[in-house]
Design a protein around this nucleic acid. Sequence first.
DNA 1: CTTCTCCCTGCAATCGATTGCAGGGATCTT
DNA 2: AAGATCCCTGCAATCGATTGCAGGGAGAAG
Lengths: 341, 341
Amino acid sequence: MDKHTIYHIAERVGVSPSTVSRALSGRGYCGEATKAKILRAAQEMNYAPDNAAKMLKMRQTRKIIFAVPDICNPFYFDMINGINQVLEEHGYLMILFYTKHSLAEELKAIQNLRENVADGMIMVSFNFCEENIRAINALQAPVVLTNQYVSPDGQDKFDYVYVDTYEGIRLGTEHLIGQGIRHLAYVGGSLNEQTGYQRFCGYKEAMQDAGLPLDDRFVAESDYTENGGYLAALNWLNQPDRPEGIVAANDLMAIGVMKACEEAGLRVPEDVAIVGMDNLDLASRVYPKLTSVALLQEEIGRQAALMLMKRLEGRHSAGKGALKLRPRLVVRNSSVRDRQA
Amino acid sequence: MDKHTIYHIAERVGVSPSTVSRALSGRGYCGEATKAKILRAAQEMNYAPDNAAKMLKMRQTRKIIFAVPDICNPFYFDMINGINQVLEEHGYLMILFYTKHSLAEELKAIQNLRENVADGMIMVSFNFCEENIRAINALQAPVVLTNQYVSPDGQDKFDYVYVDTYEGIRLGTEHLIGQGIRHLAYVGGSLNEQTGYQRFCGYKEAMQDAGLPLDDRFVAESDYTENGGYLAALNWLNQPDRPEGIVAANDLMAIGVMKACEEAGLRVPEDVAIVGMDNLDLASRVYPKLTSVALLQEEIGRQAALMLMKRLEGRHSAGKGALKLRPRLVVRNSSVRDRQA
DNA sequence: CTTCTCCCTGCAATCGATTGCAGGGATCTT
DNA sequence: AAGATCCCTGCAATCGATTGCAGGGAGAAG
């Protein structure tokens, strides 16, 4: 039951620790007879190798950090799932790090990498700024981001995998326009942040291309929560010229919008048509079912993990990796007037 | 940018590595002047301590494993959240380990503990059997289970925190009976597994206490998935003496049951009243809103983590810890006939 | 019989931080 | 002035596994 080391095994079998190490790891020469004796002794003594010692000597942890802004958002669980599939195949473990949308926590995650807590990191960040980008670039360990990020100078050392959310919002907006709706509103995230701004552009350009006017009163900067969507919609629905269609930059906000419609006594989609984005499990369960843009989060997780594994295994070491996936519109009842809910 | 060690700092400042270690860790004596010089040098050299070396010498990792059967089930998100709150306060990281409901994977998680990958583990297991119980008992590291588990001999060394799901199902069943429903059905998990059996007993005893007959035809052993609930209900709803009320042992199955009702053209709750258990976020979002028994998963996570922290900090080392939380019924539309959906 | 390989094994250094022990200097006590 | 006390610092061992180097034995080749 006590902790045994290779030294104990060595003593018992009557060989040197190095031989034990070679027998157990399979590296280097080792005679069949001694190897068998060593393996049997290890078995009998219930030997387990010490991870810390291995880490120290081998200079690798076989762990990666997944830094995620918000554990509560179901969006990320699909990513976790995708990442985990790949890690498992490669014999890595996942350390889940919750950054709470805060720069300070992201820097803590980065610090953990500096301390060799893990071999690499996959990060979802809404806080791109000079400070964390510099910190990431200074790392030895590879990092994969899952946001779109346009590097100012093209000098950044990290890879990224992302879905084009500009195109996603554009798809959703064009879908509503295609339903004959001309008076639209948009609720998204902060416009000061790259992702939030790109999504808004998807809306803006779809409107412009259809020759529709853009009204500031019907564009809300919110926070990706259900309540945020609810509040934005509540404001619009009281106006005499309320919108007939609302594009939300994620599903949670779209669900908040639906709730506001319900309270205002408006029917979805007859009075107000709605599209969301993320295509959460939830989207097909709310009433009416929510039309949403699928962002393939599981696939993103898988691809990000694959990219990280490549880096860690030394292949693919030159150049920056970037992979862009295309979103897909999933049409349900919240946006189509001639369907049954 | 290169990796620096305390030896480099020592050389630069002109002291010994031990002094550097003392200055940085704050343990042992160290003069103020030298300490200041050392801290400044560390700062300038961008020094980061090596986690592996620290782990090896200190014999602790400051990580814990959370072994969870199913990453896709939203039930566990809340637990992760609760656990994480406590870990963060104590400066621990979480390694997420996905056991896929498989004994082999649970044993792998245990093996990781034996190899000192983490200092302790919180585990959700539906595979209690002699093999993994023995493996857990043989561990040095503390383990907290979040299932109810009645030890045959009282000799087990692990703690547990759980919600009494027997009482939960009983609450749900009594609620339906209280609505005047006399013809009930129950869909749960395997009866060969402790948790599954206890839940069934909650149903059975509530029925018996109300003087209602128990009919094997209306008890289904399923698998806690939406589809499992769907199939069980489909079978019942075709019968001439279909049940007026269905108790499901979790929300996903309850939602499957609702789907079957919808397809069979039966109204919920007018034709069939339904209660679930878990009180997922989803329960209040489906249509009609699902009455469910809340199992306080976030609180369980928090309590389990607290118990583990106590063990790791050496307090509370004697005796087995057990904490039982009481479930709570949340009444919504799926079970009450005189409400609006 | 000698020489050259080819295996197998042991010695000892190494990864980077921590810590018990002891020595030395400064200050205080009697 | 001698001894006691308190700080500060360095030496060296330690945690447990890995690995380059070299020595030794067996067999093959000449």
